[in-house]
Every structure is written in structure tokens, then in C-alpha cells.
């Protein structure tokens, strides 16, 4: 029932990094924008290659924590909890950190003279931070610790500053130090946290410089937070403290990124309006959870055929998240997708489920594999034809279901 236009062909090894090419893609942001390279943190192009990359199974277990955390945040809003950051969240810490799913890095310079810092990007949080000297309880990192005392442009926010007041309003203030310096706290889904002094300094992004960039100077971390070689995290959320919000006046209220398909290829992050060629769907926002950017999925096509899914199933909307690995669908939508995909994969024997994946196949002995196309259709009829990397992971359909349509 499918025509050839409705299939993609994967060749053996296509799901692995067959070729390493770390050169920077040529990207032309509109005038006034800036682009920096972006790499997978585990691969050969990473500025801080992992000494021990997690297995796919472990990454999927961490991913489930992050997805559950995002869902709980909205559940808190729905229940009128208001301060969702303070909602009672209990997650098994032995499974790792929800932040551990973050996979993409950029390299920036902070301070005068600029000190190189390699930071994870995260569209799901706002406060950026780097580990600072002295750091009493921090993880090891590949680059030198950022040393505020060596930067001529560094300053700590006093507790009376408007930036500190804004931080308190977004429930990320953490009191005052004995020197009346504003303290921040970031908390993540597994109970991990980081604290330090809310500060500002010069930020170098590619060929551009941002003066008075606000960030957290991390002096203490607890839990399983970011046990790797990275130096910190760059928040790209929609809240007041994020890099995107801070630079809106300089580069414009827009940013874009391209996440590379393999660990051995490069991507990019652009601040400022990108060039043309996009299909666009309305962005959904929540004043209660300002960090997240939402979209409304309205249909799914498999092998060129639209699945029979009531649009009401998608009414809650979907979060665009750079940190969650696997797309989560309402249960009814996932069931329809899985059934249609299996129907288009009849030539391959089924395989055992793996973690959150339950639609898996046995590709052993295959030199190439044909898979049905998968198109996500967003509000306004915007159709996004997924790359093969976005359809199959390992040997499984790379989607997962929420526990029910209402979650």
C-alpha cells in the first residue's frame, strides 16, 4: 500500500557515525546575528570528548526522567500549584539525572580576557551557569575553571539589584551571601542542584561580544548533576534570564539551531533571525512555565498516509525540547503510529522491546533497510518530513508514548 516516495532507505552503518566531519557548516544568519558551532558532547567533534559515553539504554532511562519532569511541571500548573519549581518531585536518583540527556555543546568565551568555556545548551531552562573558581563541590571539567578574579569585566550582582529581584520572582533566588551578593539556585528533575553567585561578565559568541551577560557562577553542586567534562550550561528558554532573552535586543528575538545527526558531524547555534526557507507553525507559551516553547501537533503521516487520530488527542500541545531525546506522543497517537509503522515494516521480523521502545525490528543480515517516511504535521498544516535519524534509533521506532492521553 505504500509507493516508493513513501520510503526511506537506510544502508548498513547509517545509524552509526560512518564519516567524521567536524568542519563548520556554512550558515548565513541575517545581518546582526551570530553563529557558533555546536557539537554532540560524546563524539569526536566534541571539545570535551566523553571518556565514557552512556549506552543507549542508559540514555533512554535518563530521558524518561526528563520527560517526566517536564510533564510534572505542567501538572503542577494545572493543579494550581503555582510554584512548580517547588512542587514535590521524587525521582530515583540512581537512574541518573534528567539533565544527563543534554547532548549538545557550544564553546564560548567569558570574561576579559576571555576564558574558553564549553557549555551544554538547553531550551528547557533559563539560568546559564559555569563552574567558577573556587568551587568547593564541582565536577571535573576539561577547560580551566572560570576565575572571576582574573576578569576585569566580572561583577557579582548585589542582592538589591533588579536582576536579583527577577531571579527571586522566577523562584531561582537563593538568598544573599555574607558579602550581600545575589545567590542563585538551579534545580533539576532528579533532585540535583547547583548554587553560586549570580553575576555578569563579557560573553564572546563567535565573532560577537555580549556585554554584561548574566549567568550563575557555580560554587557548589549536589546530586548527580552533570558528571562529565563540560563547564556549565547555557539556558535558551523563554524566561528572563536565558541567553536568548538577554540578547534579544542585540540579535533579535529569535534563535535557531541544527542538531547534527551523528556524533561525528557538526551543527550550529544561531542567535538572531535565521535566513529564509522555513515552514512555520505558531509558538505556544505558558506564563506559568515561561522557559518552555510549545507547538501544536495536529496529525502524523506514515508512508504518505495520514493516521486516523482525533485532533483532540493533541489538544494539550507539545514542548519543543533540545534536551529530551525521544519524542513523547499521547498514547492514542503513539498506538496509531506504531501500528502503521509496523504495517510498513512487515518484511522485517519484530524484535524485543528496548527500554521505552516497544516497536523494534530484527535487521540482522540486512545491508539496507527500507523504512516508511514519517511526517509530523503541526498547526497550520506545517509538515515536517523527518530525517531517517529521527525515525529509527538502533533498530526501534524512535518514539515513545505517554502513559495516557491526559498526561
Amino acid at each position: 500500500g505504500y509507493d516508493l516516495q513513501s520510503y526511506k532507505v537506510l544502508h548498513a552503518g547509517a545509524l552509526k557515525s560512518a564519516t567524521i566531519n567536524c568542519s563548520q557548516p556554512k550558515v548565513t544568519p541575517s545581518s546582526g546575528g551570530v553563529t557558533v558551532p555546536l557539537h554532540n558532547r560524546h563524539g569526536p567533534c566534541s571539545p570535551v570528548p566523553s571518556t565514557k559515553a552512556p549506552t543507549l539504554e542508559e540514555m533512554l532511562r535518563r530521558d524518561q526522567l526528563r520527560a517526566a519532569y517536564i510533564t510534572r511541571k505542567y501538572s503542577g500548573v494545572k493543579g494550581g500549584a503555582g510554584d512548580v519549581e517547588q512542587s514535590d518531585v521524587t525521582v530515583p536518583t540512581t537512574l541518573g539525572t534528567s539533565l544527563g540527556t543534554l547532548e549538545y555543546l557550544i564553546t564560548v568565551g567569558i570574561g576579559s580576557p576571555a576564558m574558553t568555556q564549553t557549555m551544554l545548551i538547553d531550551t528547557g531552562s533559563d539560568v546559564s551557569w559555569v563552574q567558577c573558581k573556587p568551587c568547593s563541590q564541582c565536577h571535573t571539567q576539561a577547560d580551566s575553571l572560570f576565575d572571576p578574579s582574573s576578569s576585569s569585566t566580572y561583577s557579582a550582582f548585589p542582592c538589591s539589584s533588579s536582576a536579583c529581584a527577577q531571579l527571586r520572582r522566577s523562584h531561582q533566588g537563593n538568598g544573599c551571601s555574607s558579602r550581600s551578593q545575589c545567590q542563585y539556585i538551579v534545580k533539576y528533575g532528579d533532585g540535583s542542584s547547583g548554587t553560586g553567585t549570580y553575576s555578569s561578565d563579557k560573553l564572546v559568541l563567535g565573532s560577537s561580544t555580549v556585554k554584561n551577560f548574566q549567568f550563575g557562577c557555580s560554587q557548589s553542586e549536589s546530586g548527580n548533576l552533570l558528571k562529565d567534562q563540560t563547564d556549565g550550561l547555557m539556558g535558551l528558554g523563554g524566561g528572563a534570564q536565558s541567553l536568548a532573552t538577554q540578547t534579544a535586543g542585540t540579535f533579535g528575538k529569535a534563535f535557531s539551531y541544527c542538531l547534527p545527526p551523528t556524533t561525528g558531524s557538526p551543527g550550529f547555534l544561531t542567535l538572531g533571525a535565521a535566513t529564509s526557507g522555513f515552514v512555520k507553525t505558531p509558538m505556544l507559551r505558558s506564563s506559568q512555565v515561561p522557559a518552555y516553547y510549545g507547538v501544536r501537533l495536529q496529525a502524523i503521516r506514515v508512508g504518505g498516509k495520514q493516521l486516523s487520530i482525533p485532533t483532540s488527542v493533541f489538544s494539550a500541545g507539545s514542548i519543543m525540547d533540545s534536551g529530551t531525546i525521544i519524542t513523547r506522543l499521547p498514547a492514542t497517537a503513539y498506538s496509531a503510529l506504531s501500528s502503521a509503522f509496523k504495517a510498513g515494516m512487515k518484511q522485517y521480523p519484530p524484535a524485543q522491546p528496548m527500554g521505552i521502545f516497544d516497536t523494534c525490528f530484527d535487521f540482522s543480515g540486512q545491508s539496507s533497510v527500507s523504512i516508511p517516511t514519517v511526517v509530523l504535521v503541526f498547526s497550520g498544516g506545517v509538515a515536517v518530513n523527518l530525517a531517517s535519524d529521527g525515525i529509527i534509533l538502533g533498530s526501534c521506532l524512535a518514539f515513545a508514548a505517554n502513559s495516557d492521553d491526559s498526561s
Binding site: 557548516p25 550558515v27 530521558d63 517536564i70 510533564t71 505542567y74 531550551t123 535558551l236 523563554g238 536568548a244 534579544a248 533579535g252 528575538k253 529569535a254 534563535f255 535557531s256 539551531y257 541544527c258 542538531l259 547534527p260 545527526p261 557538526p266 550550529f268 533571525a273 535565521a274 526557507g277 522555513f278 515552514v279 512555520k280 507553525t281 505558531p282 509558538m283 516553547y293 507547538v295 501537533l297 493533541f314 494539550a316 500541545g317 507539545s318 514542548i319 519543543m320 525540547d321 533540545s322 534536551g323 529530551t324 531525546i325 519524542t327 513523547r328 506522543l329 497517537a333 509530523l376 515536517v384 518530513n385 523527518l386 530525517a387 535519524d389 529521527g390 534509533l393 524512535a398 505517554n402
Partner: peptide
């Protein structure tokens, strides 16, 4: 609530046009 994860975003350029209130997608960007 759904979540569009990073596996599905790979190779696309994903534009967060906050000022314009839109999310954009461009295929084959990297």
C-alpha cells in the same frame, strides 16, 4: 502533553522566532 525530542529534530534547523510567535523548521540544515 507531548514533547518533541532532539532525535526527531536532528538535521533540521529549528527556529524559535519568539518575537514573531512562531517555530520554524528547515530540512537538511546540517
Amino acid at each position: 502533553l507531548g514533547i518533541i525530542g532532539n532525535v526527531q529534530q536532528r538535521t533540521l534547523e529549528v527556529l524559535y522566532d519568539v518575537g514573531g510567535g512562531a517555530v520554524g523548521f528547515k530540512a537538511g540544515a546540517c
